[in-house]
């Protein structure tokens, strides 16, 4: 839970309306209890007027230390409040592992 909490704490700096940090490591070829693969769903005004790549870069910067040391995969689903409503407040499921990661 340590890394998961760390991610949550850091991303709260964006004052999100919604923030889900989901540990999906169990879907991958890593030991039980790992904190390596995460999905983040974040709805925030901070994304307004920013292109997709800029939004991702913003998160990547905030989580630079975690990405460098702990996180192997990070799926980002980033919405403005209006986009989140349009999306029906849901995101697609993450893909299955293909075995080549983790190492």
């Amino acid at each position: 839970m340590k890394i998961q909490r760390q991610i949550e704490t850091k991303l709260k700096a964006l004052t999100p309306l919604k923030l889900d940090v989901i540990n999906e490591s169990h879907m991958h070829n890593v030991p039980a209890g790992s904190e390596s693969h995460f999905k983040v769903i974040c709805v925030a005004d901070a994304f307004e007027g920013k292109a997709r790549i800029q939004r991702h870069r913003l998160i990547n910067q905030i989580l630079a230390d975690e990405l460098a040391e702990h996180i192997h995969a990070l799926s980002l689903k980033l919405f403005t409040p209006a986009e989140w409503q349009t999306a029906g407040e849901t995101v697609d499921a993450s893909p299955k592992c293909r075995g080549g990661t983790g190492l």
């Binding site: 995969a73 799926s75 993450s94 893909p95 299955k96 592992c97 293909r98 075995g99 080549g100 990661t101």
Partner: peptide, 9 residues
């Protein structure tokens, strides 16, 4: 033969 789900998608 993708070796990762994200690459496969």
């Amino acid at each position: 033969m993708p070796m990762c789900g994200f690459s496969a998608r």
